[in-house]
Amino acid sequence: MIAIIDYEMGNIGSVLKAFSYINCPAEEVTDPDKLKKYDNIVLPGVGAFPKAMDNLKKRNMDQAVKEEIKKGKNFLGICLGYQLLFESSEEDFSGTDDKTAVKGLCLLSGHVRKFNSESGLKVPQIGWNSIDSTDNTGILHQFNGRYFYFVHSYYADVTNLNSTKNDVKSLNTYFSFTEYGKRFASAVEKDNIMACQFHPEKSGDDGIELLRKWVKT
């Protein structure tokens, strides 16, 4: 059974429908204590990063998610549920120092930043874009060059990862990258974590195939 975490950040209906379509029973979970019962956990989400962190914390869901991931549960983050895994986001934050920006779950090294629309780039990115994986073992690399549906104004910046090479969070971390104004980290695989900026539940046959493969891992 798959748990889809409902923390009031957008519609989780499409994610439920997609798993039901591939005959993988999934249900929404609002109570962090109940998360233990599930083998597969999905953190979806659409909306603002600071509010999402607040909503997770209010329910103690942030700790529950971290514990289950630590236990090795098969985890999938989608869109905002991907961004939340990083150290911080500059969404609704006017400062310049990542250290004082809104903190994320800190399971991955990197910071979430806003696309720069001054160069004429349309923000949000809405539409299909391809991914380019850096790994050759996991799920993502099987979708190298394939297209997925993106809707987002913020992206994961992992450009300084090399400087934190010895950081335990960076070990075994494989990103896929996508071009939109700049090259950004569009998805990640790290041990039992898979997470993506795009919406597999809205990415047609490739998206459905990706979900199918994730459930099986």
């Binding site: 209906g13 499409s14 429908k17 997609a18 039901s20 379509y21 549906y149 539940e201 809205k202 990415s203 047609g204 046959d205 998206g207 459905i208």
Partner: peptide
């Protein structure tokens, strides 16, 4: 439609 077609 939303239950069977997975594009936006």
């Amino acid at each position: 439609v939303a239950s069977e077609v997975f594009i936006p």
